[in-house]
Design a protein around this nucleic acid. Structure first.
Length: 558
DNA sequence: GCCGTTTTCGGCCCGACTGTTTTCAGTCG
């Protein structure tokens, strides 16, 4: 069992114990173990059993639970407490904005045992009767439930990726029985690299149409049913899968039709006429258009751009020369500064690494006070001697406080090579306040990059509303780069605003926000949405060479 | 339940913010 699963299990246990009002200190220590396990730099399953209770924060009791999980895959204590809790009450733990204390009141005082009932109670204005609840809380809960329900059957790209690739392989192997000449491709949202997927689509082109149509329902990994125009099913996790099967000669037309969104497809086909087409390139050339990459086929402005032959050359992962905005054990990261830098240098073959640990306001994340900033800078100076010509840039993820100021004085801010300014607190501002707050941070002469501009967590939290145009315009006039936070939960700045930012001359940066070496790989997801947004390598800060970015930072610092 | 000892049990405890209170509890990152 992976650390992550163990950590999640412990968190669930602590939350359920809170719902059953057990000893708060006991709960706290289990919750603490959840954080600790989540941040371990090694896998518990590889650790000798007798060493587990020597880990800081894990004593005899918790070691016992972890060993039980590792050996049996289950935890009796957890199973028991789940037994004593209505399923719907456990589900409520997934609603943002309410925690165990409020759920306890909802459950025990109001007698509500499911999210559906809770939603109903909000509409009937019944929540405000309970102690500690008022109109605002009721409204907040109602909104959070609506958000959660809207997320049903929808998945992050990263959540679907593994399943999608496995299925692709299985389908491709299965097709061999009909001869070796069939075509198979991803289509729809997945091929367009959408950040949210609710349907995974494939297109099969075959010379044996009748046979494939007759046997696809017996393709074992799925329980497909022949629908009107395709074979369909919904996985146990709730993801819809759709497989189109056509004659080999029609493959490219069908693949094209099932890839772009409906408007894009219709507009292009009006220009191109109907096939047959030997490949997708031919469709676009018959339409008098430059080839449009699948990621761009959203009926945004790509057809006009293709007509004028002004499509950008989309950035690729290999264009990246470094990674900015990363964390280490100096704050809430899992790996040390050196481990992170060396991984970036030797495994990823990058030229530079920007460290941006949390600033002092982020106490929960061990944010750096002024003294520790100096300490980290000394370590960076040493490492830079050791790792040259590879370069570690001194950065910080400075909290944007409620009034828009950064949380260090100018004297400290000027010691960094660059500053990522991000919001981590007071996330519920309205658009006017949140925009004013960001504007002030952007106008700070030390701000180099605006971090995750809206604070959204896809499928989980909407993020604060901002006036995008004002924010982007301000970045343009203050020479501030906007981050494309590459964490698959964030992907913030949203790709729909990349074009506007680029038009205004704003640079973007694909930042992994890595808290461990594996986290660097999230840059792949950042690149996918950056391509959707139309980013080219020359407009991406971390695609700059070491020489170029050094010059950029120096110039910005004046 | 963990830790750190005055080695057998007492102390453990982020700060800011919000909403609900009328002094504080719950939630968040």
């Amino acid at each position: 069992m992976e650390n992550k699963t163990i950590a999640r299990t412990l968190r669930l246990l602590s939350q359920l114990m809170e719902l059953h009002e057990e000893n708060p200190f006991k709960i706290k220590s289990i919750a603490n173990a959840y954080f600790k396990v989540d941040k371990l730099p090694f896998a518990l399953k590889d650790k000798p059993i007798e060493d587990i209770d020597k880990i800081d924060g894990i004593g005899k009791g918790l070691a016992g639970k972890i060993i039980e999980l590792l050996q049996t895959g289950e935890l009796k204590e957890l199973n028991d407490i789940i037994q004593q809790t209505p399923e719907g009450v456990v589900d409520m733990l997934g609603i943002k904005g309410i925690g165990p204390k409020k759920i306890l009141i909802i459950w025990r005082t109001l007698g509500i045992e499911s999210i559906g009932e809770l939603y109903y109670a909000c509409n009937e204005n019944r929540l405000i009767e309970a102690k500690g609840f008022g109109l605002k809380t009721q409204e907040e809960i109602k909104n959070a439930i609506e958000f959660k329900l809207a997320a049903n059957g929808r998945f992050l790209y990263a959540q679907v990726e593994g399943f999608a690739n496995t299925l692709h392989t299985q389908l491709s192997e299965w097709l061999v029985r009909f001869g070796s000449h069939s075509s198979l491709g991803f289509a729809g949202q997945y091929r367009r690299a959408c950040e949210i997927i609710d349907e995974l689509e494939f297109v099969i082109g075959t010379e044996h149409l009748e046979q494939v149509l007759a046997s696809l329902e017996s393709f074992e990994p799925l329980s497909l049913i022949a629908g009107v125009d395709a074979f369909i099913t919904t996985t146990s996790a709730g993801l819809r899968v759709k497989i189109f099967v056509v004659d080999k000669a029609d493959f490219y037309l069908q693949w094209f039709k099932q890839t772009g969104n409906a408007e894009h497809v219709e507009k292009v086909l009006q220009l191109a006429g109907n096939g047959p087409f030997a490949n997708e390139e031919e469709i676009y050339s018959k339409a008098g258009l430059a080839f449009i990459e699948p990621e761009l086929r959203e009926d945004f402005d790509e057809i006009e751009l293709a007509k004028a032959n002004k499509l950008p050359t989309l950035i690729a992962y290999n264009d990246l020369k470094g990674s900015l905005h990363n964390h280490s054990t100096w704050s809430d990261g899992v790996h040390t500064l050196e481990q992170m830098a060396v991984y970036c240098k030797d495994t990823l073959n990058m030229q530079y690494f920007g460290i941006c640990d949390h600033s002092k306001t982020a106490v929960y994340a061990k944010g750096l006070n002024e003294q520790r900033v100096f300490g980290q800078h000394r370590e960076i100076d040493e490492l830079n001697k050791k790792l040259a010509p590879f370069k570690i840039f001194k950065g910080i993820e400075s909290d944007i406080l409620s009034d828009g100021s950064l949380d260090y004085s100018d004297d400290i801010l000027k010691t960094f090579d660059f500053v990522v300014a991000s919001v981590h607190s007071n996330l519920r501002m309205d658009e006017t306040k949140a925009t004013a707050r960001l504007l002030k941070a952007i106008e700070n002469p030390y701000t180099t990059i605006l971090g995750h501009p809206t604070g959204r967590l896809l499928l989980s939290r909407a993020g604060y509303p901002i006036d995008y145009k004002k924010i982007i315009d301000a970045c343009a006039s203050n020479n501030v780069v906007i981050e494309i936070n590459a964490n698959p939960l964030r992907l913030d700045l949203d790709w729909r605003w990349h074009r506007y930012a680029l038009e205004k001359g704003v640079l973007l940066s694909v930042n992994p926000d890595a808290h461990r070496t594996e986290g660097f790989h999230d840059m792949r997801f950042g690149i996918l949405v950056a391509r959707k947004g139309g980013l080219s390598a020359d407009k991406c800060l971390n695609a700059f060479s070491l020489e170029e970015i050094t010059e950029y930072f120096n110039k910005k610092k004046g």
